[in-house]
Design a protein around this nucleic acid. Structure first.
Length: 612
DNA sequence: CCTCTTGTG
DNA sequence: AGATGCACAAGAGGC
């Protein structure tokens, strides 16, 4: 069945030959041809956007531009033809898709890898991901979808998923002929984009970071997503119940004090109550004409009216309940009883990972109730949670980049970096430094990495701007090489229009020469922060590759579960704890060789709270 | 779909 | 005069 590309929505049809594989014979011939190829583009069609839940509906393959094949396995609609048997298709494809000698190409191939691995087929020799290539070529957010890339780089308007599926529930209900065109387009244009991007990566000096970091990371992240993390559902249910009772009590009290009921979750309505009705001292109006009710504002009004403390408490508890507890309960996969997040390699402008569905990189920790939530992240019977986190990785990277004498000496001597900074800022001996001064120094250390202003520092240490400015000046006059490092980054960025990480990841800084001061200053802060944050992200990614490889080599049952920017979380059988502790610490501390040592702290416990 | 708010590193 | 610390995800409200 040949489909001469008569697709709806195609402005500039390529003369493609797409074929539906319906018989054993056709499948045989296809596999024979595939076995001769050096590289094959793969795409799967499924029942869900979430790969850890999705069921396979069909697979498309392409190894020559303009030619592609669609193997339907689970289309279900009135009059659907008999399709090749799902299991036997997988068995027939295994020799080629699992061959370490045939390169696999995909668009967001982690998705397909997960779907196929769950079905029992593990893609080998994943070699190219067009989404990641596009991201490395220009790490901006939200412009790396296949449909967008095909239009931008090849001038081809693909059919959108929405246009294909319409009001049907899943792709399984769509006619095989239509899906053949759609899915073959996906595989075909993935291959075309690969051919376009491959030389560009080379030209931009991105080959190393692409082939040696991001591509091998795909299967590591896929395994983490498949693993998922065990949570204690009973405890979550209990927390939800408890938080509901507490928020209801608080809201009743708040309405009593306000003299009327209103929607407490609406900042606008709350603003009217506090600043119009109760006439409390307001701050500036926001863009939309209402006064801010942020925690910063509320904290300042705490003593002015008894309603304030209640609102603060309500906000805290409501956030935990509606922002974490309830969504976590909903996210539990009924089949595995675990929570499977997605990690995104193209989620950030700096090279960090992002997590969603649910986001497991922002689980609360700071308050007592928050700790209760951390506690529900637990391990299977006989296993423990092991957490390994880098100490001060960003400041260490800044020390390496800047070669600052004070920072390098402090890290080489294993000093507490914030205390050390306080020594220089306030010109007092180490044994005289109070927690108060250390706290200020800590704010300065973080501020430097972010490209701070006197106003910003004043806000975070609660001083006036003049004091903050003096502190910043002192920092730069003592940490001479840090100042030089920042000046060099800015000069570089202004000259070239981009900044680079240690491993050569590039980020364009668009407004670095803008006449608009606000935009320019923001670009300058991005230029300072990106090499530091981005390099830290690369260091932990490298460590993850090493750990993943080692766990496999040593045949360990330990599972890598989460990455939270400077922390890795594992689920470890009791018998493997000592070994894994060594592996994690060793791989993380030796991921790269810098002018300063990297330090990793390992903690073990029954749950994430105990292990952190 | 944007704004506000708040959770993390 | 007015803005002024990096990187995110997500829920709620409201248009």
């Amino acid at each position: 069945m040949t489909n001469k590309l008569s697709l709806v929505g195609c402005k500039k049809p390529y003369h493609a030959n797409y074929k539906t594989i319906l018989t054993e014979n056709e499948l045989d011939n296809l596999v024979k041809q595939m076995a001769k190829q050096k590289e094959i583009a793969v795409d799967t069609e499924t029942t869900s956007a979430s790969p850890t839940r999705a069921g396979l509906v069909g697979i498309s393959l392409s190894f020559k531009e303009g030619e592609a094949y669609y193997i339907p396995v689970a289309h279900k609609y009135l009059g659907a033809p008999k399709q090749p048997d799902f299991k036997s298709v997988l068995e027939r494809l295994k020799p080629v898709l699992q061959s370490p000698k045939i390169k696999k190409v995909g668009q967001n191939i982690k998705y397909d890898y997960i779907v196929l691995k769950r079905a029992g087929l593990e893609i080998k020799d994943m070699n190219f991901d067009t989404m990641i290539a596009s991201y490395l070529l220009n790490p901006i957010r939200g412009e790396h979808g296949l449909k967008y890339l095909a239009l931008k780089h090849l001038g081809y308007k693909m059919l959108s998923f929405q246009e294909l599926v319409g009001d049907k529930r899943t792709i399984a209900e769509i006619e095989i002929e239509k899906v053949t065109g759609y899915s073959c387009d996906d595989a075909d244009f993935t291959l075309r984009l690969k051919n376009k991007f491959s030389p560009l990566l080379e030209k931009e000096g991105l080959n190393k970071i692409f082939y040696e970091l991001e591509i091998p990371l795909i299967s590591v992240l896929a395994d983490m997503e498949i693993n998922g993390v065990k949570v204690n559902k009973k405890e979550l249910d209990y927390l939800a119940e408890e938080l509901s009772e507490n928020t209801e009590t608080l809201s009743r009290q708040i309405y009593g004090l306000a003299g009327e009921t209103f929607n407490l979750n609406s900042p606008r309505q709350l603003s009217d109550i506090l600043f119009e009705k109760l006439k409390l001292q307001s701050g500036r109006k926001s863009k939309t004409g209402y006064y801010s009710t942020s925690s910063f504002v509320l904290e300042g009004l705490k003593d002015k009216h008894p309603i304030i403390a209640n609102i603060i408490e309500y906000r805290n508890l409501a956030k935990l309940k509606d922002g974490f507890v309830v969504p976590l309960i909903r996210a539990i996969n009924p089949k595995t009883g675990r929570i499977h997040t997605s990690f995104h390699q193209i989620g950030t402008t700096t090279g960090r990972l992002a997590s969603s569905g649910p986001n497991l990189q922002n689980i609360p920790i700071r308050t007592e109730k928050a700790k209760e939530i951390r506690k529900v992240f637990t391990a299977e019977k006989g296993n423990f949670i092991l957490s390994a986190d880098y100490s001060q990785i960003e400041l260490r990277i800044m020390a390496h980049f800047s070669q600052d004498k004070i920072l390098i000496r402090a890290f080489n001597e294993g000093k507490d970096i914030h205390t050390e900074t306080a020594k220089y800022l306030f010109n007092i001996p180490e044994n005289k430094i109070t927690s108060h001064e250390r706290r200020k120094a800590k704010a300065v250390n973080f501020g430097i990495i972010y490209g701070i202003s006197p106003y910003g520092l004043a806000q975070s240490i609660g001083s006036d701007e003049e004091t903050a400015k003096n502190i910043i000046d002192t920092y730069f006059s003592t940490h001479v090489q840090v100042k030089q490092f920042i000046d060099k980054i800015l000069a570089d960025a202004k000259g070239k229009g981009f900044v680079k990480t240690l491993f050569g990841r590039k980020r364009e800084v668009k407004n670095i020469n803008s006449d608009n001061k606000t935009l320019r200053l923001q670009a300058e802060r991005e230029a300072i922060n990106t090499p530091i944050q981005g390099t830290a992200a690369e260091v932990i990614k490298l460590a993850m590759l090493k750990i993943h490889r080692k766990l496999k080599e040593e045949n360990l049952k330990t599972k890598m579960l989460l990455q939270i920017h400077d922390e890795l979380l594992f689920e470890v059988p009791k018998s493997e704890i000592e070994q894994v502790e060594k592996i994690a610490k060793g791989c993380m501390e030796n991921a790269v060789n810098l002018s300063i040592p990297l330090k990793v702290a390992v903690n073990i416990g029954e749950n994430w709270l105990e292990a952190h």
